[in-house]
């Protein structure tokens, strides 16, 4: 009896220490990745990163064209994905809350949320690159916007559902039409949640590489033209990291640090917004 209890206690101690070790391992990996990123990235992290374009092998240069290309595609992808996502989320939470079709769309949206992004790249390649006959920034933009929509749909629907039905009923009871209720009452009480969704999807697409590989391709020169191959930060990192040239590899690390800082700040900002709302 005594020995059985001792054994159970021993098993408990061992297993609970293992869980602590698992957490320590997770934190260790995070620390090592961020540490290396910082050490390797900081050496070429200077102003020329933002003022000069991608160089040839063994020449000085920066990542200006890639940064601008990424910003253009990200901004435009948000401009497409945000309205579509918010409207679709509105349908799922308001007009179509109880319809059968909505539950199917909800399901598909959740699947698309974690679908491999390279599949989206192949889809847009077939849809735009093959039909138009050339790679373009527009194709990259569409690919990114397809990744934005499911995230915005999910966060919008979730946050609209948190708005109490009394608000809807009160609006309708004073004779306001449903769309005015949604526009004036529901959206304004759900604004913080929708902004969180925007930040989360920005964080997601600013590091996405796979969907851009064969849509926007890349470009060694500075360009504003979305109708031609366009440089982007992730693709440049990919190409430069796999190159044999020291200066390209150094730029890849600097770009990786830049993306990580951007993504982590966006996720932390999104988290801060949610906690503020929870506390209120």
């Amino acid at each position: 009896m005594e020995s059985k209890l001792a054994r159970r206690k021993l098993v408990n101690t061992v297993m609970m220490s293992l869980t602590t070790m698992a957490a320590a391992l997770g934190l260790l990996v995070l620390a090592i990745i961020l540490g290396y990123l910082f050490i390797r990235g900081i050496s070429s992290f200077d102003l020329s990163l933002f003022t000069q374009d991608t160089p040839g092998p063994q020449e000085p240069g920066g990542l200006r064209n890639a940064i601008v290309g990424s910003l253009m595609m990200t901004a435009l992808a948000m401009a497409i994905g945000l309205p579509v996502g918010v409207l679709a989320g509105t349908y799922l939470a308001e007009y179509g809350r109880f319809s059968k079709l909505s539950s199917i769309i909800r399901f598909i949206n959740d699947v698309l949320l974690s679908a491999p992004s390279i599949i989206v790249g192949l889809f847009v390649y077939q849809l735009l690159v093959v039909t138009l006959g050339h790679f373009s920034g527009y194709a990259g933009t569409v690919a990114l916007s397809i990744l934005v929509v499911p995230i915005i749909v999910r966060t919008t629907e979730d946050v609209l559902r948190l708005v109490p039905d009394q608000l809807r009923e009160a609006g309708l009871a004073v004779g306001v039409s449903r769309w005015m209720v949604i526009r004036k009452v529901i959206y304004s009480s759900a604004r913080a949640g929708i902004i969180t969704g925007i930040l989360l999807s920005l964080a997601r697409i600013s590091g996405e590489t796979a969907p851009l590989l064969f849509t926007s391709l890349s470009n060694n020169f500075f360009s504003w033209n979305l109708n031609a191959p366009l440089a982007s930060l992730p693709i440049t990192i990919f190409q430069f990291a796999l190159s044999p040239y020291d200066n390209w590899q150094a730029l890849a690390w600097a770009g990786a640090l830049l993306i990580t800082i951007a993504v982590l700040s966006l996720s932390i900002l999104a988290r801060l917004l949610t906690t503020k709302k929870e506390r209120a």
């Binding site: 090592i32 590091g207 982590l264 932390i268 988290r271």
Partner: peptide, 24 residues
């Protein structure tokens, strides 16, 4: 804080894991 740190690990883009994986 630990929960957030673990979730940050999930937010790191896959290309970062790639370059870190290759060089480190």
């Amino acid at each position: 804080p630990i929960g957030i740190a673990i979730e940050l690990l999930a937010g790191i883009p896959s290309i970062i894991y790639g370059i870190w994986g290759l060089f480190v």
